[in-house]
Write a protein that binds this DNA or RNA. Structure first.
Length: 285
DNA sequence: TTCCAGGACCGGG
DNA sequence: CCCGGTCATGGA
């Protein structure tokens, strides 16, 4: 990876397998937009950034190399060799998904934001998830700049009640958000401990929160704790598993089931007609 | 109008 | 342990 300060920007190049658009619109994060000039605007880790990707460079606008190294290099998981991981996937279906969406990386997001975001995601659709999270940040997050607000801290949300979140329009999920905030703020849930736990232990810990089940826990561990073998099964992945992998994911994904899941999820959810790829899915939920 | 969305909780069997 | 109903909201 080459890193260069060019004026007020940081330009990087020679990073295999890094497509910004595929990373930020793959359903693992909810606070990115694409501007009319093709630039990606995102808010994460209490900072906002604009990124331009062209054939030669990836340009992080108006930041220092220190900021890039401390925040975005980690966030985009740039020190992990994805070519190596993906080349081990010897499975026709996964290979198709990898080819179609090459450049997706598993983001290292803030654990609390990830937990809260995927609590909101349950029985919900992605556009609406983004709307709820946006409102939550605008209502209770610290201002960063312009119209950008940081994700609100658990301590901030812990002191609220349901009435304070009526305008969030999160429905039945509001009480789950509050429980997660309170248990995180009062130390019942400790991210530092979860970091060093096994996936099974960590999931059990997260499931102490109301509204956190297997799927939300797996998403949190994969996208917020860097545990790449965590395997979230949502309605899409469930259908994929039933049709392609009734006996489980192929052995070549061992250790990186979450990475394989990310590509499969993105590949199939963007298909208009699932029947084309999952002909038996009609009668199978 | 009905169905569905990156699910989880709860009660009954 | 497993199953179905239920939970808010809004777009298709």
């Amino acid at each position: 990876m080459q890193i260069k300060q060019i004026g007020a920007d940081v330009a990087i190049k020679n990073i295999p397998c890094f497509n910004v658009e595929n990373c930020v619109f793959s359903g693992q994060t909810f606070r990115w937009t694409k501007k009319s000039d093709g630039t990606f605007h995102g808010i994460a880790m209490d900072k906002s950034v604009d990124i331009e990707q062209n054939s030669e460079n990836i340009i992080f606008k108006n930041i220092s190399i220190d900021d890039f190294n401390i925040v975005w290099r980690t966030y985009f998981d740039l020190d992990t060799d994805y070519e190596k991981i993906l080349s081990c996937f010897n499975d026709e279906t996964i290979k198709k998904a990898v080819t179609a969406y090459y450049g997706i990386r598993i983001l290292n997001q803030d654990p609390w934001e990830t937990l809260c975001s995927f609590i909101i995601s349950q029985n919900n659709n992605i556009p609406r998830i983004k709307g709820i999270i946006s409102r939550l940040c605008n209502m209770y997050g610290e201002k960063i700049s312009g119209n950008d607000y940081a994700f609100p801290k658990p301590e901030k949300l812990a002191e609220l009640n349901k009435a304070d979140l009526i305008d969030l329009r999160a429905g039945f999920r509001t009480k789950y958000i509050l429980d997660a905030a309170r248990k995180t703020a009062n130390g019942e849930i400790q991210p530092e401990k979860i970091h060093i736990m096994s996936i099974e232990e960590a999931a059990k810990e997260l499931k102490k929160i109301k509204g956190v089940g297997d799927k939300v826990a797996a998403c949190t561990l994969l996208y917020g704790y860097g545990k790449k073998d965590a395997f979230p099964v949502d309605v899409w992945v469930k259908r994929i598993m039933q049709y392609y992998y009734p006996d489980g994911l192929p052995k070549c994904t061992e250790g990186y089931k979450g990475v394989a899941q990310m590509y499969l999820f993105e590949y199939f959810r963007n298909k208009k007609t699932l029947e084309e790829y999952l002909p038996q899915s009609k009668n199978k939920n």
